[in-house]
Simulated scan of single mutants.
Amino acid sequence: MLQRIQSIYLLAASIVMFGLFVFPLAKDVSVAPGVLDGPMLTISVTGVQTRGGFSDYKQTETFAALPIVTVIAALVPLVIIFLYKNRKQQIALCYSAILVFIGYSFWMAQTVKKVVGEITLEYRNMGIGLFLTSLSIILIIFAFKAIQRDEKLVKSADRLR
C-alpha cells in the first residue's frame, strides 16, 4: 500500500534531495577576503556562479557529474516507495540509501572545499543545500523505522494465524 507513513517520509526525502537544485551549497563567498565590492561566489549543485560588484550572477564553472548523481540519489527514495510488497528489500535499500547519501554529502563538501580553496567558509556563507542531505538521511531513517514496524506487525499477525 502506498498510503503508509514511510511513503510520505521517502517522498519527502526525495523532494528534499531535488531541493539541492534550488538552494545553494555556499553563498556570497568572497574571492578576495577583506574586499567588500569584490567578486562573490555562489556554489550550487549545478556549478559556480560569480557576482562581480553589484551586477547579476553569471555561471563561471559548471559541474558535470554532481547534478547527474543528485538526480539519481533523489530518485532512490522514490524507487524504495514502489517496492512496498517486499519490506526486506525496502529495508536493505534504506540502508544503502543512507550510505549513498553520506558519501554524497562528503563529495559535496569536498567540491565546495575545492572551489573555495584557502578561504575559510563561515556559517553565514553556508547555504541551505549543505544541510539538505542530512535532512534527507533523517527522513530515510524515519521511513526505515516505519518499515520495521510494518514488518513486525505482519510477523505478529502471521503468528496469530
Rank of each mutant, 00 (worst) to 15 (best):
K27L: 09
A26N: 09
L20M: 11
R149K: 14
Q110W: 05
A143F: 03
Q89C: 07
W107C: 03
L75F: 03
A157H: 12
M108Q: 15
Q3A: 14
Q148E: 14
A74N: 08
A74I: 10
G127N: 03
F54P: 04
S14N: 08
R161M: 11
I137T: 11
V22I: 15
V76F: 14
I102P: 08
K145A: 08
Q110F: 10
Y104I: 01
F63S: 00
L121K: 06
V69P: 02
R161Y: 12
D56M: 07
V22W: 12
T60Y: 00
I81H: 01
K58R: 09
M108L: 15
F54N: 10
T120D: 09
A109P: 12
A32W: 05
L121A: 04
L153H: 08
L36Y: 13
A12E: 05
A92G: 03
T42D: 02
K85V: 04
R51P: 00
P39R: 04
V45R: 02
R159D: 07
K155G: 11
L11Q: 08
Y104M: 05
S136H: 07
A97F: 03
A109L: 07
Y84T: 13
M40I: 10
K155F: 07
A12M: 10
S14C: 10
F142E: 02
I15L: 14
T60P: 00
L20I: 08
L2F: 13
S7N: 15
Q89F: 10
I72E: 02
V29W: 09
E118P: 14
S44E: 03
I119T: 12
L135K: 14
G103Y: 11
Q90P: 11
I140T: 04
G52M: 03
S7R: 02
L139D: 09
R124A: 14
Y104S: 06
D56W: 00
K114A: 13
L66W: 04
I15Y: 05
L75G: 08
K27I: 14
A157F: 14
I81F: 00
R87Y: 13
L130C: 09
F18P: 10
V112R: 01
V48T: 04
D37S: 13
V116F: 05
L153M: 15
G38Y: 01
I43D: 00
I15G: 12
F82A: 11
